[in-house]
Amino acid sequence: VPCVQAYLSAIIIYLYAHDFQQAQKCYNDCSEVQGFLSSDQNRCAMKLLSAYEEGDAEEIKRAAQSSAINHLDHVVIRLARKLPTGDLQAIKKDVGGDDGDSLDEDDLT
């Protein structure tokens, strides 16, 4: 299942590089691949992304210890173990900020 491992690796690398939007986009693209949807790698990626959205550093660390990550390339495993990097609150604000803007527009109409 090397391709599903590559998908999870790419998501981890984007998160490590503080590019949450790209990680999310990558996850959405991968979700169109049937083999990925039913994989442990998918469950791990979902846990990582939702923990980032919630700004939950402990959950990110737990997800980064998952067995799905243990089967990735050793370089990616090392990156995953260093997560989270960067300002989780900024990511949380960016994710929530988009919703907030659309809600404000609704309030004005």
Score class of each variant (00 low, 15 high):
Gln21Met: 07
Pro84Arg: 07
Lys25Asp: 01
Arg78Thr: 12
Leu83Pro: 10
Phe36Ala: 05
Ala45Tyr: 00
Asp40Glu: 14
Cys30Val: 00
Ala64Leu: 06
Cys3Gln: 15
Glu105His: 09
Tyr14Glu: 10
Val33Leu: 05
Thr85His: 02
Ala10Gly: 15
Leu15Val: 07
Leu72Gly: 01
Leu103Asp: 12
Ser66Gln: 06
Gln21Trp: 02
His74Val: 15
Gly86Trp: 00
Ser9Leu: 03
Ile69Ala: 01
Asp19His: 07
Gln22Lys: 13
Ile91Arg: 03
Asp19Gln: 15
Ile11Phe: 02
Met46Thr: 14
Asn42Asp: 06
Gln41Lys: 11
Gly100Arg: 12
Ser67Lys: 09
Glu54Pro: 01
His18Tyr: 01
Ala10Val: 15
Tyr7Leu: 03
Ser66Thr: 10
Ser38His: 13
Thr85Gln: 14
Ser31Cys: 12
Ser50Tyr: 13
Arg81Val: 11
Val33Cys: 04
Ala45Glu: 06
Lys92Trp: 04
Leu72Met: 09
Asp87Lys: 10
Asp104Arg: 12
Arg43Asp: 09
Lys92Thr: 13
Asp106Ala: 09
Ile60Ser: 04
Gly35Leu: 15
Asp73Glu: 15
Val95Leu: 01
Tyr16Asn: 09
Cys44Ile: 05
Glu54Trp: 09
Ala68Ser: 10
Ala80Ser: 04
Cys44Asp: 02
Lys82Glu: 14
Tyr14Leu: 04
Ser9Gln: 04
Ile60Thr: 06
Glu105Asn: 14
Asp29Ala: 05
Val76Ser: 05
Asp107Phe: 13
Lys93Arg: 07
Asp107Met: 10
Ala6Val: 15
Asn42Trp: 05
Ala10Arg: 15
Ile60Asn: 11
Val95Gln: 00
Phe20Asn: 00
His71Asp: 08
Ser50Trp: 05
Cys3His: 14
Asp29Leu: 02
Ile11His: 00
Leu8Gly: 03
Leu79Asp: 04
His74Pro: 09
Lys61Trp: 03
Glu32Met: 09
Ser39Ala: 11
Ser66Ile: 12
Ile12Trp: 00
Phe20Pro: 00
Ser38Phe: 11
Leu49Met: 06
Arg78Lys: 13
His18Leu: 01
Leu83Arg: 08
Ile69Thr: 01
Lys82Val: 05
Ser66Leu: 07
Asp98His: 12
Asn28Asp: 11
Leu103Arg: 11
Ser39Leu: 08
